[in-house]
């Protein structure tokens, strides 16, 4: 018999809470295909009015960075504080940015 998880692979779920905001990753679930994954995502992740749009992506379709390569990837940015836009004085008239 086929393994249950071959029939229902893992999907990553993204929800957009409101128009104008972006979709955010909220979790994952098992489903046979994209139509059922969307329905399950609706049942599992939008029970309390969390959103108005859902994306699902097969987990296996996501290319992820290698955790063991985290230091070479990310540490070189640590000492380049001039890349943060914190050296500007924002005039009061501009308001909230």
């Amino acid at each position: 018999m086929t393994d249950k998880h071959d029939l229902t692979p893992l999907w990553e779920v993204f929800i957009r809470p409101r128009n104008g905001l972006h979709h955010r990753h909220v979790g994952s679930l098992h489903a046979a295909d994209s139509a059922l994954a969307l329905q399950s995502a609706r049942d599992v992740y939008t029970r309390r009015g969390e959103g108005n749009s859902i994306w699902v992506v097969r987990s296996s379709d996501i290319a992820a960075s290698d955790p063991s390569f985290a230091e070479p990837n990310f540490e070189p940015a640590d000492d380049k504080i001039y890349r943060h836009p914190t050296f500007y004085d924002i005039p009061d008239e501009v308001g909230h940015m």
Binding site: T8, L29, H30, A31, D43
Partner: peptide, 8 residues
């Protein structure tokens, strides 16, 4: 049969 369906 599965958690997703339990909720549905």
């Amino acid at each position: 049969p599965m958690l997703e369906e339990e909720l549905a």
